[in-house]
């Protein structure tokens, strides 16, 4: 019943990074995610779209066990990362989150300097052996976060002093600094203006080269612009999942069509 990751790798250059099977999520008595199975490919941008409250963010937070911090939340089913069940009792969520980084809806830089914001992850995970290495990681991450040129002269300035778009790119750079394999983004542009949004979208496209990126978005245009695969969620169900172009031009499910054409959502 399972597809082994190897076979798909051999078929077309992409491998399955995350694979969820029969995933159920409950908030107390509320059944928030109903039997979702999805396979997320490596080096691909996957977009989760759907109306508000459809469970797309909830599902995203399951992928690096951020829901653990909410007492009443319960997850059932399997979610495999590289074939390992991330909800296995032996798995340390701390280790998992180092592999599956996350960027949030609202930019949330720590009240520390820009340098310390980036260095935070590498420091706690012990990625740098000395100051020079740490400097290197910080510079590399900021460059990849496409913000290096704007902040290289003021690494000691507080991260909270940046503009909204800069803050979000700082947060992305911060997530990259721990060298994750998957990057989860929860509506990363919803608090940003159009120019900053364009910058972040460009960044996401570049990140595809190295990471598997999963992005939750409200905006169908954004999903169409940045993603290769799209999953449409509705009322806790995964309604449709496939190539982005396919979903937007030729949806199979009537609900997807209604959403895309603007009748629901």
């Amino acid at each position: 019943m399972f597809d082994t990751p190897h076979r798909e790798t051999s078929v077309d250059q992409t491998e399955i990074k995350i694979s969820a099977r029969g995933c159920q999520v409950y908030y107390g008595d509320t059944h928030a995610i109903k039997d979702v199975s999805v396979e997320i490919e490596d080096k691909t941008v996957t977009a989760f779209i759907g109306p508000s409250g459809c469970g797309k963010s909830t599902f995203l937070r399951c992928l690096n066990r951020m829901n653990d911090t909410i007492d009443i939340c319960r997850v059932e089913g399997d979610i495999l990362l590289d074939g390992e069940d991330i909800y296995d009792p032996k798995v340390d969520p701390v280790q998992l989150r180092a592999k599956v980084g996350m960027v949030f809806q609202k930019p949330n830089p720590f009240p520390k300097s820009i340098y310390d914001n980036i260095a935070y992850g590498p420091r706690i995970h012990g990625l740098a052996r000395n100051k020079a290495e740490l400097d290197e990681i910080v510079e590399k991450s900021l460059r990849r976060g496409a913000i290096w040129n704007e902040v290289k002269d003021r690494l000691d300035a507080p991260g909270t002093g940046l503009s909204g778009g800069q803050q979000q790119r700082l947060c992305i750079a911060r997530a990259i600094a721990t060298e994750p394999e998957v990057l989860l983004m929860d509506e990363p542009c919803s608090a940003l203006d159009p120019i900053a949004t364009a910058q972040v979208e460009e960044l996401i496209d570049e990140l595809r080269q190295q990471y598997s990126v999963v992005i939750v978005t409200h905006s169908m245009q954004q999903a169409a612009r940045v993603s290769q695969k799209t999953a449409f969620f509705h009322l806790g169900n995964l309604v449709e999942y496939g190539e982005t172009g396919h979903i937007f031009t030729n949806p199979e499910d009537p609900r997807t069509e209604s959403y895309i054409t603007g009748r629901i959502g």
């Binding site: 399972f2 082994t4 190897h6 590289d82 074939g83 069940d85 280790q95 998992l96």
Partner: peptide, 29 residues
């Protein structure tokens, strides 16, 4: 197939298994 995680890691990154906590994680815990 889950018992052979190493094989699914073609990239150059050090892909340690999630199921075994490394020394640093043990210390942090």
């Amino acid at each position: 197939d889950m018992s052979q995680p190493g094989t699914a890691a073609p990239s150059g990154k050090n892909r340690s298994s999630l199921l075994a906590a490394d020394a640093r994680t043990k210390r942090r815990n």
